[in-house]
Design a protein around this nucleic acid. Structure first.
Length: 737
DNA sequence: CCTCATTGAGTTTTT
DNA sequence: CTCAATGAGG
């Protein structure tokens, strides 16, 4: 038994073998967090303290859940199938399917992804006659989701102003529309599940007794609702182990609450907080720099990473004149490192926002360096796949208005807006679904015939696929719907046809591999003879597959394949590590992002983001910056990121002599690193675009734009602390820096 | 009904 | 710049 515990350090060992009490593990970057979690589970089971079925482990991503299961099965000779290891949403889905009746849902309820949700919100808003200029649907979506994540139904939300009252109306209408259609969004999975546990005492105590150990990964990223859910599942005898790192909390912008860590300590009577501070990933200089940076944050639980390895190399800082030059510098370095034997896939090129990847990709493409960009469209989010899934959804549940609207005229079959409006009016008038309206009161004439043909098509597909194996159902639908034909005819449809064929494969492997079992009846409940769940018939494979498609949108790019440089945002780099990391675009306004500066705690979150980025590197870390950057079709002039100043300068190796814009007024003969701006005044009142200036109140900044002349001359200055400001030269006391 | 042109907006992202 | 969402004309 001691074998699985071998090689753990003291703190890790303590965490893994903790006696029966709830615990908070503060696990720094690279400190072996996943190892602790999985070894803890394996140890609990192997030492005979619990059965695998009494363990619940929850993560945020499917990838993390899979990783956990893989590691557990590597340590223990047990079948992990039926174990409750999964994402918050996946586990809630499982629970709701098993108890759909008590939860007030059809067993085959479908799950809306964010895009589906947004389009339903638009539909609802149109129905209510809400002005979508004044009340942007995106904001309505945010309103709905953040309220749900606080555990608030529309009836429980209190509005203080007229503006949010409109969103509240949308929320209420959206809620009832979801119920009519039998669909739920992501937040609903958690809210519905929590409400179920809250009001159904029998179920609650059943699960509270069953789960003796609950383990939570990335606890710093939990929101209020997820925390409530955990509290409901944990009974008096349940031990909860929460593992997280407040310094790596980078999702506050979507509701994550590090405060849950403090609440957890008191709510669960945590006696001891274990800190895992030994880092097994990076060399000393990298950790020292990251530690120094994060110390600038006020709100921390406090933690300092250390390593027993050497100091290693200094961090390399490069200041480029332009974004293009920055890219070319990076790819030179990539090439050199590759020649030294570092594989491309062990190097990552990180950026704060996706827009930055373009220039970098361009450079890499021209240089012929293989690269892979993360964060694009994922498989189940592709248009052609969404269309195919919509046909399938309609077969499974004709009340699904969203699915109907997506495909009623795709491929085009002569059903236009007018016809659709008629049906929508009929549906709204009698509170029925679009499908029912189309069936019961079809429009007359040519449109009516088209509608009738569509209804016949769907019904014939339903008849033809009934009882077929899942992959044959999918195969039939992509043919019979005309999707394949449509894309074959399209000029650039080859990829789409291929993807549709891939969907058939996805369905096949969903059935043959463990996928389906995860979505069907809870085998564990059947084993323990739980009547509630045992009575529920198995979920049909089609509904299970559709749920899978929503909950696990698939990889964001085709096979990892060849050795390639990894390009991604800092957010998506969390949890990964590389030999070499390039952090690009270290400029004020970009990183930290200008929008974050107005938000409460925004700057600290940006700093944590930088901390995450730095701690991805094992051996070598590059920090680069461009003085000039094309953004949204405009040239922008940026000062170096404050984060570069927050790192001890003795840990940095500056790789080029800083070529700063010259400050001696407009008639300097020194070469300017900035390219000329098209059709805009370059100098105004002795000041130049790109020039660094000092303001008595705002401090230092860079002139980014200018217009007017004489008395009307104005310049826009990007101040290091206060961001962009327009200043009239006549009044502002500006001086060259 | 479909296609092309214009307009406008533009962090970060998993489920 | 580049994508998505509207609107005019075929």
């Amino acid at each position: 038994m001691s074998q699985i515990l071998e090689g753990l350090n003291n703190e890790q060992l303590e965490a893994v073998t903790l006696p029966h009490s709830s615990a908070l593990i503060l696990a720094g970057a690279g400190s072996g967090k996943t190892r602790v979690l999985t070894t803890r589970i394996a140890w609990l089971i192997q030492s005979g303290q619990v059965s695998p079925l009494s363990v619940l482990a929850v993560t945020f991503t499917n990838k993390a859940a899979r990783e956990m299961l893989t590691r557990i099965s590597a340590m223990l000779p047990i079948n992990t199938r039926g174990m409750w290891v999964g994402t918050f949403h996946g586990l809630c889905n499982r629970l709701l399917r098993a108890h759909h009746r008590e939860a007030g849902l059809p067993q085959t309820f479908q799950i809306l992804d964010s895009a589906d949700q947004l389009s339903m919100i638009k539909r609802v808003m149109k129905g209510l006659g809400v002005n979508d200029e004044k009340y942007p649907p995106r904001q309505a979506q945010y309103f709905i989701n953040s309220n749900k994540e606080e555990g608030l139904r529309a009836t429980a939300v209190e509005t203080v102003d007229d503006f949010s009252r409109h969103f509240l109306d949308v929320y209420a209408a959206y809620e009832s529309q979801c119920n009519r259609e039998g669909v739920v969004d992501f937040a609903e999975l958690l809210l519905r599940c929590s409400e179920l546990l809250q009001k159904n005492e029998i179920l609650r105590s059943h699960y509270q007794t069953r789960f003796r150990h609950i383990l939570v990964d990335e606890f710093q990223d939990t929101n209020r609702l997820q925390y409530m859910w955990l509290k409901l599942l944990a009974g008096a005898d349940t031990t909860v182990m929460a593992v997280g790192d407040d310094d790596q909390s980078i999702y506050a912008f979507r509701g994550a609450r590090t405060g849950n860590m403090l609440d957890f300590e008191s709510d669960f009577g945590v006696e001891k907080v274990i800190k895992l501070e030994q880092n097994y990933r990076s060399h000393g200089n990298i950790l020292d720099a990251a530690n120094a940076l994060i110390r600038n944050n006020r709100t921390r639980l406090g933690k300092n990473l250390w390593t027993s390895e050497g100091k290693g190399e200094l961090l390399r800082v490069y200041e480029a004149a332009t974004d293009v030059e920055e890219a070319s510098y990076i790819l030179d370095e990539v090439r050199a490192l590759k020649n030294e034997g570092v594989s491309l896939s062990d190097m990552a090129l990180l950026y704060r926002s996706n827009a930055q990847s373009r220039v970098l990709e361009h450079g890499l493409f021209n240089a012929g360096i293989a690269y892979r960009v993360y964060g694009g469209l994922r498989f189940f989010e592709r248009q052609e796949i969404k269309h195919a899934l919509a046909y399938l959804r309609l077969i499974a549940n004709p009340q699904d208005d969203g699915a109907l609207l997506r495909v009623i005229n795709f491929p085009t079959r002569g059903i236009g807006n007018r016809t659709l409006e008629q049906i929508q009016a009929a549906a709204e008038g009698s509170g029925i679904s679009l499908w029912q309206a189309a069936c019961s009161s079809p429009p007359t004439g040519r449109a009516g015939a088209a509608i009738a043909a569509f209804i016949r098509l769907i019904e014939s597909m339903r008849n033809a696929t009934e009882g077929l194996p899942l992959q044959e159902q999918v195969e039939h639908v992509i043919e019979a719907s005309g999707l394949i034909d449509h894309y074959r005819k399209e000029r650039e449809g080859a990829d789409r046809v291929e993807n549709l064929e891939e969907l058939v494969n996805a369905a096949a492997s969903f059935v043959s591999e463990e996928g389906l079992a995860n979505y069907q009846a809870d085998t564990a409940n059947a084993v323990t003879g739980d009547a509630d769940a045992a009575d529920v018939p198995e979920l049909d494979p089609l509904s299970a597959f559709l749920a899978h498609a929503s909950l696990e949108a698939g990889d964001n790019q085709a096979a990892a394949g060849a050795d390639a440089l990894q390009l991604m945002t800092v957010h998506s780099a969390k949890g990964l590590e590389f030999h070499t990391v390039f952090i690009s675009g270290l400029e004020e306004g970009l990183f930290p992002h200008e929008n974050s500066l107005n938000e409460d705690g925004g700057l600290e979150e940006e700093r944590r983001l930088m901390y995450v980025a730095m701690t991805r590197a094992r051996r070598r870390l590059y920090l680069s910056q461009a003085q000039t950057r094309m953004l949204h079709g405009q040239t922008r002039y940026n000062v170096a990121s404050r984060f570069l100043d927050e790192v001890p300068q003795e840990l940095l190796k500056r790789l080029n002599v800083s070529v700063r814009p010259v400050a001696q007024g407009g008639n300097s003969t020194a070469p300017s690193p900035a390219p000329r701006i098209r059709s805009r005044p370059v100098t105004v009142g002795g000041f130049r675009i790109g020039q660094q200036v000092l303001h008595s109140k705002f401090g230092s900044g860079v002139i980014v734009q200018a217009d007017g002349s004489g008395k009307d001359a104005r310049v826009q200055v990007n101040f290091r602390n206060d961001g962009l400001k327009w200043l009239a030269l006549e009044y502002a006391k500006l001086s060259p820096a």
